[in-house]
Simulated assay, not measured.
Amino acid sequence: MPKILRFNKMSIVEHSASRSMREGGVSLPYPMLTSTNYSTWAIKMEANMEAQGIWDAIESAADDVVEKKKDKMALACLFGAVPDEVLQQIANKKTAKEAWESLKTRFLGVDRVKKARVQTLKSEFKALCMKKTETIDEFAGKISGLANAMSGLGATMTDDELVKKLLDSVPEKFLHIIAAIEQFCDLDTMPFEEAIGRLKAFEERIRKHSDNDGEQLLLTTRNTDDGAGRARGKRFDKSKVMCYHCQELGHFAFECPAKKKNKEIALLATASSDDEPTLL
């Protein structure tokens, strides 16, 4: 071990990254820092370094003298638990405490952004309400999308929170099924998928019932209009009526223009015949 302390910082990193921290025969693997896991990474690193007896090098007061060996080992642990691009940031730090504070300053800012984003998503989740034109599937997809987004940021939504949000946000036409669910089911243990399934079944029943009512209403309206039209002497559509006299569409034989014209010609012919003896 004393030989390792005489290596430069990069040699320490290579040696440390190739092994796990050990205390009493228990393997303590390094957690790797990423752009999104600083909070959990810091907790694991603190636990591992305390197990190694080197955490004092990180949380020591400014005027405390840190044992050089502990400081070197703590610095090696930090170098082995960060990716290469982050290593360049802390490679020139002289102590483990300086390296730790540098990482904290960099990633705690990201962590604050993440927390602000979570608060924004929670506000959106709270304001989310199902539109009358939406289906249960569409609205449940919105709830799941926000829940997944928050989960990716470390804020997990439980099934009972999702179920209660779903039941509280649907239109009034679902009140009957919601009342039944609340009366006969345990909302604290009901899976979110089950709540969706129950509401979808009720939604399908409503849709089918609405379709039947619409067809019946349309039929009734047509019958009423036809009867009222006949009662009022509603004009008949003769565009498809064929005249038996001239074989043309659009009128009956008794009102055929050609028949009337022929009748007028016959009358004129008869009148002319009657006038001839008088002229003689």
Rank of each mutant, 00 (worst) to 15 (best):
S102Y: 01
R106Q: 15
R106L: 13
R106A: 10
L108I: 08
V110K: 13
D111Q: 12
V113N: 12
K115Y: 07
R117I: 04
R117S: 08
V118L: 01
Q119E: 10
Q119I: 04
T120I: 08
L121V: 01
K122I: 00
S123H: 07
S123M: 10
S123L: 09
E124V: 01
K126Y: 09
L128W: 01
C129K: 15
M130F: 00
E134A: 09
I136G: 01
F139A: 06
G141W: 02
I143N: 00
S144F: 05
G145Q: 06
N148H: 10
A149G: 03
A149L: 04
M150L: 07
S151P: 03
G152C: 07
L153T: 02
A155C: 12
M157T: 01
T158I: 04
D159H: 08
V163G: 01
V163C: 02
K164F: 00
K165T: 02
L166A: 06
L167W: 05
L167K: 00
L167P: 05
D168F: 08
S169L: 05
P171F: 07
I177H: 04
A179Y: 04
A180C: 08
A180I: 14
E182V: 03
Q183C: 08
D186I: 08
T189S: 14
F192R: 07
A195M: 05
G197D: 10
G197S: 11
R198G: 01
R198P: 02
L199E: 02
K200W: 06
A201H: 10
E204P: 01
E204A: 15
R205S: 11
R205C: 07
R205G: 07
R205A: 11
S210E: 13
S210W: 01
N212V: 13
D213N: 14
G214A: 10
L217D: 08
T220M: 06
D225H: 12
D226R: 11
D226F: 07
